[in-house]
């Protein structure tokens, strides 16, 4: 077992542990912190896959942006403790877990069927921002345009939902 393998297993274990932490935490803040750890471990794995640019993006967008936003919302609405409700069907979580395990078993089985190993070592082109940028802005320009529309939609949406209408303020 070479070093890269050991390193992968360690990071993967940390990643899975953090993922379980997100799901299992009682308090939302803890989940968010576990999520942060999880995102960072993934960024490390991206580097081992020769995707340096995406690793950086991962840290900036997910760890730096999304988790912070989630933490901000938790602070805004207050992390409420778990409140039990009558009529809650207790079988639902178990069904969810069973379904999930079934899914991972099936997927793992399918994935293990054919061993995959890159035939040739990549020329380390993919990770370099320049290559990615050229590819994105020439052959995939439509994606950029679409992403622009996507962000415009998100912007409009946030505006629409965040602005409390005047008439309503009077009612409340």
């Amino acid at each position: 077992m070479d070093f890269s393998m050991i390193f992968f297993i360690l990071v993967a274990a940390l990643s899975v542990g953090a993922a379980v932490g997100v799901v299992a935490s009682r308090v939302a803040v803890h989940s968010a912190l576990f999520l942060l750890v999880h995102f960072v471990t993934l960024a490390i794995l991206y580097i081992t896959l020769d995707a340096q640019f995406l690793a950086a993006a991962q840290v900036i967008i997910y760890a730096g942006g999304i988790v912070i936003l989630i933490l901000f919302v938790i602070m805004l609405i207050g992390s409420q403790p778990f409140t039990g409700r009558a009529g809650y069907r207790t079988w639902v979580p178990f069904a969810g877990v069973a379904l999930g395990l079934l899914m991972v078993a099936g997927l793992a089985y399918a994935i293990v069927q054919t061993p995959l190993m890159p035939a040739t070592l990549p020329a380390n082109a993919g990770g370099v921002p320049e290559e990615l940028g050229m590819f994105l802005y020439t052959q995939n320009i439509l994606l950029v345009e679409l992403a622009a529309v996507l962000l415009l939609v998100a912007l409009l949406g946030a505006l629409l939902l965040a602005k409390w209408p005047k008439a309503e303020r009077i009612v409340n």
Partner: peptide, 24 residues
């Protein structure tokens, strides 16, 4: 597939918002 995904997400996000515009 990437275009399908982006378009799908764009209109889905828009619809999530539109279904919630009745603030009252």
């Amino acid at each position: 597939l990437i275009v399908v995904f982006l378009a799908l997400e764009t209109f889905s996000l828009g619809l999530y918002i539109l279904s919630g515009v009745n603030r009252g």
